[in-house]
Computed example of a mutant assay.
Amino acid sequence: MTVSASNHSPSAYRAHAEFKQWTWRGFPICYQHQGTHGPAVILVHGFGASCGHWRKNLPALANHCRVYAIDLLGFGASAKPTPNLEISYTFETWAAQLADFCREIVGSPAFFVGNSIGCVAIAQAAVDNPDLALGVVLINCSLRLLHDRKRAAMPWYRRLGAPLAQKILNVKWIGQLFFKQLATPKTVKKILLQAYRRDEAVTDELVDIILSPSRDAGAVDVFVAFISYSQGPLPEELLPILPCRALILWGTDDPWEPIALGQEFAQIPTVEKFIPLPGLGHCPQDEAPEIVNPILEEWILQKSALLHQQNSTQ
């Protein structure tokens, strides 16, 4: 089924993009699909983003792959059910969503590609469903630096800030006021200009893709629920137990996820390659698709051919 991405005035991107809808556990989920042949690839966005964040990658990868970009529950044009009452927003929940999507819509095992928190979601999906993951690609993986276990190792005066902010934002009217001030074109653009290093990549279209879902009912509650989520898996715990090989790409100028910490993942046996991307920020797949797309395509096609060869000799 083809649906519009939101009920708001469409951007040029949404007006021309074809969105489809899938129902998961009673909730509508938005996704896009391009490509008719080749290995299956599932693209998973980061916090506050949506499948539109892959608009520069879908067409290129679709030349040789069957490519799907999905809105995680709570984001983009997907449903935003009430946290804790209707659904728990955890990486295990999103992993289950991705696994069911792979089985019901894709219809075959797939390569999973994620950005930011999407990396943790796809790693959890691969660990929980080893029969579905052909390989994973992590692009500027969220390090989850505010996780409870990481904060426990900090000096006491550094441990207090995040829990206090979470408690304050969980006061409903405060959380709503904060979100209202955050969800403006000016503020979103300012945040994106911090995350990106190529200013020209921060377009009005991109701002609209990020901002439009914030007007949906339930968006504030999802935002507060996620920033209050300091538990669950860490990437350094998931990567060693992956059932498949991993490729990691990292914009060297990411202000939020330091590459110096990310490079430690290169020592994990399941990580086949760690590729720094000089001069790029937190979302290199959108900032420099001409660099990222060929890397993704080459690795996915090489791994797919190798897996096919291995299967044919067994």
Results as ranks from 00 to 15, higher is better:
H53I: 13
A153V: 00
V120S: 10
G74F: 05
L160P: 07
L160A: 13
L98C: 05
P130L: 00
F112D: 07
L61V: 06
G118Q: 07
R149C: 03
A69H: 02
N129F: 04
A162E: 12
A96S: 12
V137A: 14
G52R: 14
V44P: 09
S50N: 15
A69V: 00
R144T: 00
V106L: 00
R144G: 03
L132D: 08
L146M: 11
P163W: 10
P59Q: 05
N115A: 05
I70V: 13
Y68Q: 09
V113G: 08
S142R: 08
K150I: 04
H64M: 02
C102G: 06
I70H: 11
L98P: 03
T82W: 07
V67K: 09
D100L: 04
V44K: 13
I105F: 02
D128L: 04
H45I: 15
S88R: 14
D128S: 07
S108Q: 14
A152H: 02
I139V: 11
R151W: 03
A152K: 04
Y89D: 01
Y89I: 00
R149V: 04
G74H: 07
D131A: 14
V137G: 13
K150N: 05
I122Q: 08
N63K: 11
A162N: 12
N63F: 01
P163R: 09
W156I: 00
K56V: 14
I87C: 06
F91K: 00
V67T: 09
L85G: 03
V120D: 10
T82F: 06
A49H: 15
A99N: 03
A62T: 06
L72G: 04
E86P: 02
N140I: 00
R55Q: 15
E92H: 06
W94E: 04
L160Q: 14
V120T: 14
I122T: 07
P109M: 09
E104Y: 07
D100G: 03
T82R: 14
A133Y: 10
L85I: 12
E104C: 07
V67I: 05
D148S: 14
T90R: 08
H45S: 13
V127M: 01
Q124W: 01
P39F: 12
P163K: 10
F91I: 01
S116G: 10
N63I: 00
A99W: 05
D148C: 08
L43S: 12
S88N: 13
A79G: 08
F112V: 09
P59L: 05
L143R: 06
